[in-house]
């Protein structure tokens, strides 16, 4: 699990850097949340949970909101991804994108509720809903691209000689 965790964390960090240096302040997208959702659709729960903690900590460290807000939001996404994986058996990209949209919407509800409970902002404030709604729709539309990126990481790791535990070693003729 360590190698994929490091690889996905580095991908997350790279996305965070791109958001900070290129997209901000003109484009707001929840790319880290999308990454976590698509990693959550992969078999390993422990990898997803660990990545959720890493990405949640990263976002919380740069924000002025209470530490733990993004951490909790990451775990909501992990839960949604696992639910989609086990109950809906998602195979097609379109359905995955729709499930991603639902997960991001649920994460938004969680964030709104917690920030409201902490007295940080009014519940479902009118001006926020529109901006956040656009942000969520734009992010979900990038689902297929994120799917490709998430597929690419284990392939790249395999190229470096890494194999998941569940996968048998490649056949080598005896005596070689």
């Amino acid at each position: 699990m360590i190698a994929p965790l490091i690889a996905f964390s580095l991908v997350g960090l790279l996305i965070f850097y791109v958001q900070n240096l290129v997209l901000f302040p003109y484009v707001h997208l929840r790319l880290l949340a999308l990454l976590l959702f698509y990693v959550g659709l992969r078999p390993s729960l422990s990898l997803t949970l660990a990545l959720g903690l890493v990405l949640g900590c990263l976002q919380d460290s740069y924000a002025t909101t209470p530490f733990g807000l993004h951490l909790g939001a990451s775990l909501v996404l992990v839960a949604m991804a696992r639910f989609s994986r086990r109950r809906l058996l998602l195979q097609q990209l379109g359905f995955q994108a729709l499930a991603g949209l639902a997960a991001l919407a649920l994460q938004e509800v969680y964030l709104q509720l917690v920030t409201f409970m902490l007295g940080y902002q009014p519940l479902f404030s009118h001006d926020l809903i529109r901006v956040h709604g656009m942000e969520i729709l734009g992010t979900a539309a990038l689902g297929p691209l994120m799917h490709l990126l998430v597929q690419l990481v284990p392939d790249a790791l395999r190229g470096l000689g890494w194999r998941p535990r569940s996968e048998p070693m490649p056949y080598r003729p005896f005596g070689e």
Binding site: Y62, T64, T65, H70
Partner: peptide, 13 residues
């Protein structure tokens, strides 16, 4: 050198 890129807070490092 950095901002919080989310819409939930406005901070800079």
């Amino acid at each position: 050198i950095a901002y919080d890129p989310t819409l939930w807070s406005r901070s800079a490092i």
